[in-house]
Amino acid sequence: MPEEKVRILIAKPGLDGHDRGAKIIARALKEAGFEVIYTGLHQTPEQIVNAAIQEDVDAIGLSILSGAHNTLMPAVIKLLREKGADDIIVFGGGIIPDDDIPFLKSQGVAEIFTPGTPVSETIEWVKKHVKPRHKRK
C-alpha cells in the first residue's frame, strides 16, 4: 500500500565533536514517526548535500556548536541550489547567537533552534513544515 514517509537527514558539519544534541533530535524525530538518516560527525557541506540527494530527504537538520554556522549553513544551501535540490528544507540548531539568526534566515535557513528550546517544539515545527518534497510542488 502506498505510504509516503517523511525523510530527514540530521548532520553535523564542521569540527566540533559534540553530537548529543543531534542524537537527541534524531531520536525524537524517530519517535515522532520520521525516517531519520544520521551521518555522524565532522561532515563537509559536500558530504551532507550528496547524502541528502542520494537519500532523497525532505529536510536537513544541521547541528553546529563550533560557531561556524554563518559559513557552514549557507554553504550547504548554496550546494543544494547548485544541484537543483533547493526544495530540501534546511533547519538548524546549536549555539547560535540571536544576532546571527536574521542573516541565516536571509540565506535560506528555514528555522533556527537555540539552546533551551524544548525538543517537542522542534518536532512540532518539523511536523508542521516538512512534507514529502515531491508533493509540495
Binding site: K5, R27, L29, E35, V36, I37, Y38, T39
Partner: peptide
C-alpha cells in the same frame, strides 16, 4: 511502535 527509524549505516 512509532513507524519511525534511525538509519545510521551511512555514518
Amino acid at each position: 511502535f512509532t513507524g519511525g527509524a534511525i538509519l545510521g549505516d551511512r555514518i
